[in-house]
Design a protein around this nucleic acid. Structure first.
Lengths: 245, 245
DNA sequence: CGCGATTTGTGCACGCCTTCACAAGCGCAT
DNA sequence: ATGCGCTTGTGAAGGCGTGCACAAATCGCG
């Protein structure tokens, strides 16, 4: 869905290049397919039908087939998809065959958990550095990494190419950190701070706001509650509808 | 955005009810507007134009106006929107005026951080209970709450109505926990476990998978890398968009 | 009181995404 | 070899969301 905008591709007409420009919606689902495929692989499956994989990934089978068709014909009619082949293919498209270095800025409550989160390492992402602006936290050891001061970020960038930066700071510090990351050559940012970041067009930003998810659920709770309430009449508590004229 | 499906509304033709059924895309943006509005309010603004609010929320102004128009006419032409009025209105729609009890299951690495996350409390969500299946963790004090065993969930449900459950367990345990939550009367679930949950139609599930976000960023990194290796060389990068804030 | 500046609310067109439905292709049994 | 059943891949239709462009409405000022 609408994450922050990223650079539109120039209208270059590549004829089925090594990189088909997949619909954004498809890209967002590929990791889900990948997870389901790994699960099937662990369960001993060699092949899987679109119906089976769709169920495992929680989507419609037609959608899944169309998604996969975008990255080429890797299925066999009458049989299904080769699990291993499809895993390799999706991992290639997602660029997971290359281990991307991730750095994490902000080792507070959330950042601390992210630094130790198994789900990153188990899917090929290696956190190579932790940063914080708080001197009290600098030097702390987390999961085998030492927290460094944010000012050292630019120096680290010279030593190791960092592709992805994760921001887990308070909102007030996030923009400055983003600027630092961009200056250090980072071109992808995962932002957990509840604020809008301004970055150059060539930098991708994805935002995860935990509270927003709860608020969306809250809306649905509110909606469901208003439905179970008696349908006829009584417009509930919110009677602050000032009638204009 | 395709989160897990939730119950379709019966085709009842309510004429501008107290609850306009907003487009899902709009709902997902309302919390963002709300955050921007609070920020403006703290800054002393009484009114704000659609252009100003749109910039603060990182969206198009036409989109913002259309979103807000769905919940009624709360703006004044030639002037803008009354910040406080709009805050109240959005909070009402999102059901944030009612404090919803949240319980959290799984006090591991991530769950621990979530239990102490300020962003929940500061936006009206109160975590009232923590659960875990690991006896070694039961009894632990986190942020003033005692971790209880998952089996006590049903008993707590009798005492206090829990609207929202947060699952922060490993994927292998998530479905069983979801079943327990549903049995306890929970009708909204926020799932951090990387798996698909199966729940009754009247239960809403939203999923947050941190690793998926990284994988999507990885894709774009891969894409960008394959573009720079292309003909015209160097696609102009450095046009930072100036956003005063 | 009237006029111009300003901003909201929205009709409309466009594009993306989803879903259906089916032809094309593949393997297997006979 | 041939036909049958199964599954993929895709054309087409419909729905949803976005963004433009403009009419309607309001305020301030002379």
């Amino acid at each position: 869905m609408s994450q922050q905008r990223h650079g539109s591709t120039p209208g270059e007409a590549g004829a089925v290049p090594a990189f088909p420009d997949l619909p954004e919606a498809t890209i967002a689902r590929l990791p889900e397919y990948l997870r389901a495929l790994h699960h099937l692989h662990d369960g001993g499956s060699d092949t899987v039908s679109s119906e089976g994989l769709a169920t495992a990934a929680g989507v419609n089978s037609a959608k899944l087939r169309k998604d996969l068709s975008h990255l080429g014909s890797y299925g066999t009619r009458g049989v299904g998809y080769d699990v291993v082949l499809l895993i390799d293919q999706i991992e290639y498209i997602l660029g997971l065959d290359q281990h991307r270095a991730v750095c994490l800025v902000g080792v507070g409550n959330l950042g601390h958990a992210l630094a130790g989160y198994d789900g990153f390492a188990s899917r090929g992402f290696r956190i190579v550095a932790l940063f914080d602006a708080d001197d009290a936290r600098v030097g702390e050891q987390i999961n085998g990494l030492t927290v460094r001061h944010i000012d050292e970020l630019s120096r680290l960038a010279g030593e190791e190419a960092i592709a992805i930066g994760v921001i887990a700071t308070p909102a007030s510090a996030a923009q400055a950190v983003a600027d630092d990351l961009v200056a250090a050559g980072v071109t992808s940012i995962l932002n957990f701070a509840p604020c809008v970041l301004s970055v150059p067009a060539n930098v991708d930003v994805r935002k995860v706001d935990l509270a927003i998810e709860l608020q969306i659920l809250s809306f649905h709770e509110h909606r469901k509650a208003s439905l179970t309430a008696l349908p006829g009449g009584f417009a509930g508590a919110g009677d602050q509808e000032a009638v204009g004229s």
